[in-house]
Structure formats: C-alpha cells, structure tokens
Design a protein around this nucleic acid. Structure first.
Length: 438
RNA sequence: GGGAGCGUAGCUCAAAGGCAGAGCACUGCGCUGUGGCCGCAGGGGUUGCGGGUUCGAGUCCCGUCGCUCCUCCCA
C-alpha cells in the first residue's frame, strides 16, 4: 500500500521552509510593532463554536467544515478559521476583565474541505490579528495600516496590490439593506443565475459578489450598503476612510464587497494581488461588533483580519531563500575505525562550540565527499590516518580553496577554535574558514 | 457541488498501437587522500492505480485516485 498525503494537504519541504520561516518572522515582527501579542488556540474546537460564530448558513461552515465526533460523541471541528477561536479564548479566560484593549495575533493551520486549486488547499495556513474592546474607527484603520505595512516589509510592490473597502453597517442596517436589495432584485429575478436566485431568499447580499456576466446589470444598479447606514455607522465609516487618507493608504470603495462570514459588521476590507489567479485575496477582514456577545461574552466590539500564507508564498516565490550552509563538513579519509570515531567526536566538539557541522556518513570517495561539502558547507575538515598521526585535521575553506592544519586539541576549546572560522580581516592568511561567502 | 486538461526515472520532458528513451541529478573511473571544467561507464521504471479492447497498450475505452485550471467560495 502506497501512502501519500491526503488530498489538499501537502508537505512543505526543506527547500521551502526558509521562505516560510522568513515570512513568519516578518509577520511576528510587524504584529509586535503594532502591539499585538500571540495567542495559540487549539486546532480542534466544538463544532458549534463555528456554526454559531461564523454562521450556520455560510459555505465555510455548512459545506466545508471538517466535523467528526470524539469517543463520547461530542461533535468536534478542525478550525476553518481562527476568529471564533480567539473570541472563545477571550471570553473563556476573561480577558475583557483585564482591562484595556486585547490585541491578539495568531499563526497556524486551518482546515476547509474544498476542491484544491491554486492558492487554495484543505489544510492551509493563516496569520491574523484581532483587536477586541474598542469601537474607535482609528483602530479599523490601524488594522488596515498593519496589513499594508506587512506587505511593505515583505517587499510587495504597491502597484501589485489593491485594497478594497466597504461598510455593511450594523445589525439593524443590514436588515434594512437586505430588504432594499430584495426590492431591487426581486423584479429582476429572471436575469439572475440559478445560484443568485437561491441567494435572493437566503442571503441577498451574497449576490453582490457574483461574477457572472448575466448578473452584472442587476448588481450594478443595486442599492449600495453605504446608503443604508444609520448615522452612527455612517460617521464611523467616514472616520475610517479619513484615517486611511491620513495614513496615506490608497483604497477603492467597493460596494459589492460583502464577505462570506456572518459575523462581519460595519467595516469590511480585502487586500488583493494582481499576480494571482481566481483566488486573488491575500488577506481579508473587518469589524465584528456582535460576535463576542453572540458567543456568550459581554458586548464587545472587535476588528481584525486574516491572511493566507500559501498565497503570500505564491506571490513571493521569486524570493526563495537559499538554505543556510553548514560551517563545517567533516570528511573522514579511508576506512580506519579510529578515523571515523574521531570524525564523529570532532563534529560533536564543533557543535558545542556553536559551529554547525555534519559528517560524511555515506562513505563516498573523498572526491565526491568534497563535492558534497562544497554544496553544503563553508569549509571541509579532512581527517585521515596521516592527520591523525600528527594529532590534527586539515581545514579547507571551500570558497578560497585555502587549507590550514587544525590541531585536534583546539576542538576542545571554543575560544581557540573560533579564530579558525572568523572572517579574515584585511586579507591576512590567518587561516581558516570565514573567508569569502561567495 | 459543476466543467476542462494532465499523470512516463529523484526532477524536466520525449516515445501519435510495435524493443520504454533523453537531458539534468545520482554512483564509479580517467584523477590511488581534496570540489567547481571535461571525458567514459553504470545504476535506476509494476508508464498513478484497477479493469477492458487488441496478436500486441505508455498510447484506445471504462472506472478510480491525484495534480492543475475555471466555476463556486474564500485566506
């Protein structure tokens, strides 16, 4: 039986992990600069957390969620997104009682049972932030600013990106807006695609982001959510936009941006790339002022976003990081047992001195092993009967080709060892291996 | 969920019903214990899997799994 990774879930191989680690480090740094602190929540939650929080009617919950029962029959779900988990933890640990604003971030795998394609898999990775406890529109703008700053840090050109913003109002606004949409669309039911006809009764707002040609005329003339905002929501949105202007962030108002999760209120936004295919959203988010209360906490507003790691990786493929080279690759010469034992010992000493080291365990010819060493390491350390007899090894700098004897006793003393590996100053033949990095 | 295309060596790909191949990579040798160039030789495959048609299937048919893309939805 041949076993392979399950559909839509893949291995991230050592060639790719340096890029992932780089992205993760940049994300953590950016989030930290904005005052967010990491919260790690379980990958598994009670299924009802998501059906209540994200919405029973959403595709994410009712079509795409991995649900199973534990041994006691409790319905569990692999998390399809993290906001609901963060809010659950916020309530469970009484973070609201600790005063102030809770600014939390996360990073990790999410699961949705979908048909895999470019930029979409069943296990994927999201990074995101949630700011809980303030209704200040400056915070909406800050979160958007953070997403923009993150892209700058990652070296994504502004021209390749576009930011779409909209406001869908509070609960009451949405009820009124939904009615207005129905009134507009019902007479045009025949123009709409079958999906949209179904949405007309279930969730008319989702018709707005239908991409079918036939639906466009009805969508273009449809009423806009920002015309149905209550005075508070209208003022809030204006403040958000004015803060974005202040921060110098370019955006386009998109009246068709509604997003697929039920908990969003007021501000919604999406940051998209021009370099991706059908799945072009790098990150998306917005405000969710009713979610904490909905999940049993005190009324607490929130705003945040989530981004997809895989999509970042796609956009940044060109920047693949090279794997870091080892400091030393040890090549035992010949078959003598004592030589090989000394090689293993030397590796252990080098590592304790803080130098990364590996040994030629495959027993290839010295020629082949040296070739391999040049791929893997900055220096090769040759160790054979001749060296052993003199109590030393031969250290070779693989970029300059220079060799120098390294007395074995130096291996026991990091202080004496390090000079051999420090970059040469003013070209002095000090020996060693720090030379040109090539 | 619906649609289209593709699965051949570790990788990139040939073979259009008739002996499964090339390049790169890998191993050895030229060069006996020191890389990058060059030359020679070698190892590698149940052609995704399972059926069927045929004297004969990588090739045609059916099924299945996987990948890619579109639709849908979203990160």
């Amino acid at each position: 039986m041949k076993i392979s990774a399950v559909r839509g879930m893949r291995d991230i191989l050592p060639e790719e992990t340096p890029l992932w680690q780089h992205l993760e480090a940049e994300i953590r740094t950016a989030f930290g600069l904005y005052g967010f602190r990491e919260l790690r929540t379980p990958l598994v939650e009670e299924a009802q957390l998501f059906s209540r929080g994200v919405g029973e009617a959403t595709d994410v919950v009712h079509k795409e969620m991995y649900v199973f029962q534990d041994k006691k029959g409790l319905p569990l779900a692999l998390r399809p997104e993290a906001t609901a988990s963060v809010v659950r933890a916020y309530i469970e640990h009484g973070l609201y009682a600790k005063g102030g604003l809770a600014k939390l971030y996360y990073l990790g795998p999410m699961f949705r049972y979908e048909k895999p394609q470019k930029g979409r898999s069943r296990q994927f990775h999201q990074y995101g932030v949630e700011a809980l406890g303030s209704l200040d529109p400056a915070l909406d703008a800050e979160v958007i600013d953070l997403s923009s700053y993150l892209m700058e840090r990652l070296g994504l050109a502004r021209e390749g990106l576009f930011l779409r913003v909209n406001s869908i109002g509070c609960k009451g606004d949405r009820v009124r807006y939904r009615e207005a949409l129905r009134e507009h669309l019902e007479p045009r039911r025949d123009e709409l695609c079958p999906d949209c006809q179904r949405r007309l009764s279930e969730n008319p707002m989702r018709i707005l982001d239908c991409k079918r040609e036939g639906c466009q005329p009805a969508i273009r003339t449809a009423p806009r959510s920002i015309d149905h905002l209550c005075p508070d929501c209208r003022a809030h949105f204006q403040e958000v936009l004015s803060h974005l202007d202040l921060l110098g962030i370019q955006y386009e108002l998109d009246h068709t941006l509604v997003r697929g999760l039920d908990y969003y209120t007021r501000t919604v936004f999406e940051l998209c790339s021009r370099d991706l295919g059908a799945q072009d959203a790098l990150l998306g988010g917005g405000r969710y002022d009713d979610l904490v209360e909905l999940l049993g906490g005190p009324p607490t507003p929130g705003v945040g976003f989530a981004g997809g790691m895989e999509r970042l990786v796609l956009v940044l493929q060109g920047q693949l990081k090279k794997t870091e080279k080892l400091d030393v690759y040890i090549v035992p010469v010949g078959q003598e047992r004592e030589v090989w034992r000394t090689a293993a010992w030397a590796a252990s000493r080098l590592r304790r001195a803080g130098l990364s080291a590996d040994v030629e365990y495959l027993g290839r010819s010295v020629r082949k092993a040296t070739q391999a060493a040049a791929q893997l390491a900055r220096c090769a350390l040759f160790l054979g009967p001749e060296e052993l007899a003199q109590g030393q090894a031969t250290l070779k700098d693989l970029s300059s080709g220079k060799t120098v004897p390294l007395p074995l006793e130096k291996l026991s003393s990091p202080d004496e060892l390090h000079p051999f590996f420090e970059p040469e100053e003013n070209g002095d033949v000090k020996g060693g291996c720090g030379g040109g990095q090539g």
